[in-house]
Design a protein around this nucleic acid. Sequence first.
DNA 1: ATATGAAATGTTACCCGTAACGCAATAATG
DNA 2: CATTATTGCGTTACGGGTAACATTTCATAT
Lengths: 351, 351
Amino acid sequence: MKNNKISLAEVARAAGVSKMTASRVIRDEGGFSEKTRHKVMAEVDRLGYLPNRLATVFAGDKKSTFVGVSIPELGNEIFAQLLEGIDRKLVAFAHQTVLGMTEHALDQEEAWIETVLSWQPAGLIVTGRSHSPRAMQLLKGAGIPIVEIWDFNSNPLDMCVGLNHFDSGYSMGRYLGELGYTKFGYVGTSHDTANAASSRLAGFTKAAEDAGGTVKKKLLLKDVPGFYTGLYGTEQLLAAHKDVDVIFYQNDNMAVGGYEYCRRQGLEIPRDIGIAGWGDLPIASIQPYRLTSIAVPHLRIGQIAAEMLLAQVNQQPIKRTRDVGFKLIPGSTCRMQLKPDIDETIDHSKT
Amino acid sequence: MKNNKISLAEVARAAGVSKMTASRVIRDEGGFSEKTRHKVMAEVDRLGYLPNRLATVFAGDKKSTFVGVSIPELGNEIFAQLLEGIDRKLVAFAHQTVLGMTEHALDQEEAWIETVLSWQPAGLIVTGRSHSPRAMQLLKGAGIPIVEIWDFNSNPLDMCVGLNHFDSGYSMGRYLGELGYTKFGYVGTSHDTANAASSRLAGFTKAAEDAGGTVKKKLLLKDVPGFYTGLYGTEQLLAAHKDVDVIFYQNDNMAVGGYEYCRRQGLEIPRDIGIAGWGDLPIASIQPYRLTSIAVPHLRIGQIAAEMLLAQVNQQPIKRTRDVGFKLIPGSTCRMQLKPDIDETIDHSKT
DNA sequence: ATATGAAATGTTACCCGTAACGCAATAATG
DNA sequence: CATTATTGCGTTACGGGTAACATTTCATAT
């Protein structure tokens, strides 16, 4: 574990040229002879020289090639995919992702923003539109491209790509209402943040009320929205409100867990109760049933976010807001529609 | 989007002190009066000064607080959890994760290692034990703590935490053999790397042969090991070898997809065919059946890796290798055992 | 008052590359 | 052959902090 920190100066000395010449050769910016190139590169290989990018950024008073990317959690595969989409694109354009997991907490986000800004990143991608006052101030003053993703916002700090979660919740609520459901249930998790899932619930509740129904909620405090949570959240919801006739879940994984709980209780789906998820996750289409859900282009959101950011870094013009929309997927876990005129897939996708 | 780059010098000038005094106040390293502290901090707040950590690292010729973490992919929730475990621990100790997705390709890993080393990271955590020759050389010469995770290796480059994948495959093979299976199948994905899944398959094959059986394989080239892959991989395997009586999958998600394929074909499980997964992922226990699988402490591997690395950074003594073991989970997707003496859970966990 | 040590603050040099500019050697041109 | 471009390479200064050392200020003891 020897520390082989070879500096440019050492390479230059070994090659018998000045630092500047060595620098030119290594960056291949021209202005040197072939003979010199060989001498220098030979020493680079022999000594195992690795440039110190800190110094490079520092020297030019430039930005680094870091891009800070904050997401709430990785356990939730939706966010993992968002991150994957972002990183793929960033790497393709020679940038690096510095991860920030906020765990849905604004103060964690704020602390991360402060830290990551101190590394002179090329830009930031943050999940969600709500930030602490100080975080807002830091973001505004950062002087670098910022992309807010996930929850679409027509008036972003800088740039934004996502979808309207309220509308997606409303859309599901109206659809279920049109199927004749009136006693709606909702099972999700809850954090101290006004997040995207809250918007969906708000939209869902609005639609339910517009349809003359009610919504019974079960919000599991600070829990992970996964299979288990869906299972025991359903148990708790039904224990308190046994007359619920359809349940909308925060995401598909919870819905699959909820489905399994109902099945174990001997409930037949969709005869006895309807189940609807959100996200159209892979699990939704590999079950013996087809889960009613809302499809969202996760990976694309990530890719678009990275594209926006890189365009901004390279001073290329770009549309600063993108609403990617969503798509309601009717499934076999809710009763068949009563009205024949809504037979087709309900598509709110945007190009 | 103004660039508000306030430097320490400007803060110092505004406060009427030298850079050095301002620096001391900001780092709270003592040697200044209370009055001075107030003057300086007032200017820090007023000007919105954010220290430039690049300069700090650069000045002291120190390491940064970056830790490079490479994983093959994020779509696979096992790796997402590994990353989550790592990042949680790192953040708790004021370090930041720089992400590297290798997509199972050694050349991508190599390129990432080179890039991330140029940022003077405090350490590196890499998934897997096989690296390109140049990557090996870079890692060895880096002079920083390196933790290889996932595939346990008693003779690591520097440090290592994981489990013996060969043994876990062998364990499953022997278990299934003891249940009386002889015509084994395997469905997984394949990449150009000798990875952990390959080791599992090798162990599985060895056990199958020891039990006097054979293994029919279906390896999907460069695909993601998820539900779909499991479904159509099973279709392909059974099309080529219809007499297979038990299938071992690369992971639980693939196994659940395979289960669903068999169900759709009218096969009854475990009467007509056995299904075994790997990883004991959440989905495995939320299905109507209990999937036979192998449980692995994903999150703990990540946490231990980060702990090892941080200990090394802080020059604290630490055990350099940790085998976390695994645990075979008998389920309802394989036939009941023939011999009564292996009734209990087979535990290879290590503390 | 004066000496003395501690506390507070300032000065200088440096980390490692690169931009900007200068100069010498070589090649092209009249 | 003299003049002018071009090429190849070197010198200097700088970025934003901090270590190490120097100096001033202040409180306390003599």
